[in-house]
């Protein structure tokens, strides 16, 4: 039986400033080698789930646990969670002017390696890795040396997220609406990249509104998140059913 990589139990979380509960007892178990899709209506708490698991400020966990690889991660800083192998592909990737993609990734990679008590990567090996991984998502080598996401098109930003995922080789990757704003060609490229990266030792969680993405990245499980809980779980056919009927029938 494969190893459990992410285990979320009875997770309750609220927005700190408003005290408004968003997640209300969410359970999700993700094992190595699996692809999970999380769908649901707007405001159900999909992006909040990504934020809470990755440790973004502004949310308070009021109950429940989140374990990665058997260890509680809720007390860890966001960078420590990343170093433990959690990756979040952002819905809206952030621009960092003046910082080249390459410098950014090399710093990140070496921070992660230091945490794991590994030797820093040499410039030569790093550049070889950049070439190999940027080819995965068909990312122009020029973009790798430009400032992080600055002046990138919407599609380039999303591809850059997957490129970063490829470079950092996470155990658990959460893709938050990576398909939004992509044309069909870009979607294919991104999906192909993710498919090449997934293996029996890692897991992918896709947060999406559209069934379309799941034509390219086939999930093992589809979950419906509504009002802060997972209300239904099925296989790929559930996504097709949702596409046809919407979410109302679930209530």
């Amino acid at each position: 039986m494969s190893k459990t990589l992410l285990d979320i139990k009875n997770l309750h979380a609220e927005i700190e400033e408003e005290g408004k509960a968003i997640l209300k007892g969410l359970n999700l178990t993700v094992k190595a080698g699996e692809v999970h899709a999380i769908m649901g209506p707007n405001g159900a708490g999909k992006s909040t789930l990504a934020s809470v698991v990755s440790g973004k400020d502004g949310y308070e966990v009021t109950d429940g646990t989140v374990e990665m690889d058997g260890a509680d991660i809720l007390e860890l800083d966001p960078d420590e969670r990343a170093k433990e192998g959690l990756f979040l592909a952002f819905q809206y990737p952030v621009e960092i002017p003046g910082v080249s993609n390459i410098n950014f990734l090399r710093t990140a990679l070496n921070e992660i390696k230091e945490y794991r008590q590994e030797e820093p990567i040499s410039a030569k090996d790093f550049m070889a890795m950049v070439r190999e991984k940027s080819a995965l998502v068909d990312l122009d080598a020029k973009l790798a040396s430009r400032s992080v996401n600055e002046g990138f098109s919407g599609g380039e930003k999303k591809r850059n997220e997957i490129f970063q995922m490829a470079m950092l080789e996470p155990k658990v990757a959460i893709l938050d609406e990576t398909d939004s704003g992509l044309d069909i060609d870009a979607l294919r490229i991104v999906a192909a990249g993710v498919n090449k990266l997934k293996n029996e030792n890692n897991a992918v969680i896709l947060i999406t509104h559209y069934q379309r993405l799941l034509d390219y990245i086939v999930p093992d499980f589809v979950h419906v998140l509504a009002d802060g809980q997972i209300v239904k779980t099925g296989d790929k056919s559930l996504a097709l059913e949702l596409e046809e009927k919407g979410y109302d029938w679930l209530n």
Partner: peptide
């Protein structure tokens, strides 16, 4: 946060 999520300390 974006940097932290990639493994950089604050």
């Amino acid at each position: 946060f974006y940097c932290q999520q990639r493994g950089l300390s604050e």
